[in-house]
Design a protein around this nucleic acid. Structure first.
Length: 110
DNA sequence: GAGGTGACGTCGT
DNA sequence: GACGACGCCACCT
């Protein structure tokens, strides 16, 4: 069961509220994965399984859209974030700290 | 069964 | 402050 650990990342990312963003490290910490790389890797896997996953709400520690290149139209990641009211500039989230959403909240509710 | 990969993060120089 | 190297661990070939 635990082998499908990426499903946990899946569930968590799925709970990211609209207009909010989070980073890989926060998810890794929330799930006690121990490595943010696992989150990025998990998202890359989940992307092909469930494209509906709001992976565009997950960025790196600097708020940069590091995974934009994995989207079909790479710029769609920023477009979707902007559509949710999140300002994007130079492929990075402005006021990232202000829009940051802690995945721990999702776990707390669960 | 062993090696390589990866949407990152932290520490050291 | 910017750049480089290492660690981290599940999944794939």
């Amino acid at each position: 069961m635990k082998k499908e650990y990426f499903l946990r990342v899946y569930e968590l990312v799925e709970q990211i509220p609209e207009g909010r963003v989070t980073n890989y490290g926060a998810i890794a910490d929330a799930l006690a994965l121990g490595s943010a790389r696992m989150v990025g890797w998990a998202l890359s896997q989940s992307h092909q399984i469930e494209p509906l996953l709001p992976a565009h709400r997950v960025v790196n520690r600097k708020g940069e859209l590091s995974g934009r290149h994995h989207f079909d139209p790479p710029e769609s990641m920023a477009e979707q974030l902007r559509a949710e009211g999140i300002p994007i500039e130079d492929n990075a989230v402005l006021n990232f700290a202000s829009y940051f959403w802690s995945p721990l909240e999702a776990i707390a509710q669960d």
